[in-house]
């Protein structure tokens, strides 16, 4: 075990209780917040009482039909998968070049890739939307995919570069000595070694793209809305749709994205997303 001596007595100190108390307070309020949305999504009507008088599931059916949820889900999935595919296809080779070579202008390239991650999406989203309107790409699926690629591609490069740096160059040299060509080194040696990293980056991009509101909101049209944009539009124009139906849709969204996150957590150790942490071997 790691540090039993340091931890012993931790529960008895008041400081630990303050921390756990704060965590409990946060979680209780959060659970109540989520629960109030879930309860409302099943309520016939709910005004000014502790609990609604009667429950129903019709809002889910309503949401499904009124919002055209099956179409919206289809668009969401299509956009997200296309973004993941393109970001990996372009990003992994770029990460390889950045991890293996030191060249003049590398800092400039790194800065170019870092900026889309650092700037708020609205900052480049508005000029990007203007440009896409100019090329008549705004409102189309390709426009939405292109816009979402802007933060996704640098993200893949930034996640994959340290991953590739970890792989011993000798493995590649050995493959070359055995007569493998560049393509074969990639497909037979590197990609199999990189599968965990590629999976991790891919799922994280998937989660982020499903959750990316601003960019999709700025460039999407009626036929290219993803779930979160449809949800926001419904919530921002109250009165047109029943509040319970919006809540039902929000619950569907949360279920979808938490399913994705759980999937991601199965492949990625959450504490290793940013830094390649060397696990301390148990002594």
């Amino acid at each position: 075990m790691t540090v039993p001596t340091l931890r012993s007595g931790g529960w008895r100190r008041p400081y630990a209780w303050i921390v756990w108390g704060g965590v409990a307070f946060f979680l209780v309020n959060l659970a109540a917040l989520i629960l109030s949305v879930v309860v409302d999504s099943f309520a016939v009507s709910w005004f000014g009482t502790w609990l609604p008088s009667a429950f129903t599931t019709r809002w889910y059916a309503d949401a499904w039909q009124e919002f055209g949820l099956s179409d919206v889900l289809q668009v969401t999935l299509l956009v997200a998968l296309a973004v993941v595919g393109l970001a990996l296809l372009l990003g992994v080779p770029a990460a390889y070049a950045l991890a293996r070579r030191d060249f003049a202008g590398k800092r400039l390239v790194t800065l170019l890739l870092l900026l889309p991650v650092l700037l708020p999406p609205i900052t480049y989203g508005i000029p990007l939307a203007t440009v896409l309107y100019k090329f008549q790409l705004a409102g189309t699926m390709s426009g939405v995919i292109a816009a979402n690629l802007v933060p996704a591609l640098p993200f893949v490069v930034l996640v994959m570069t340290p991953f590739i740096e970890q792989i011993d160059t000798n493995v590649e040299s050995a493959a070359r000595m055995c007569g493998a060509r560049t393509r074969q080194v990639f497909t037979r040696v590197l990609v199999p070694l990189l599968v965990p990293g590629i999976l991790a980056a891919g799922i994280l991009v998937l989660v982020r793209t499903v959750a990316m509101f601003e960019l999709t909101f700025l460039v999407s049209g009626p036929d290219s809305q993803t779930l979160i944009v449809a949800l926001y539009s419904a919530a921002f124009t109250p009165g047109i749709r029943a509040a319970q139906a919006i809540d039902a849709m929000a619950v569907v969204y949360t279920l979808l994205s938490s399913a994705l996150l759980v999937l991601a957590l199965m492949f990625v150790n959450p504490t290793q997303i940013v830094a390649q942490v060397k696990e301390v071997a148990p002594e």
Partner: peptide, 18 residues
């Protein structure tokens, strides 16, 4: 970590109700 998946709209709705 799970609150990441809530999405701004659900959080907003939840805050308005809760």
């Amino acid at each position: 970590v799970l609150p990441v998946t809530l999405g701004t709209v659900l959080v907003a709705d939840g805050l308005l109700r809760y």
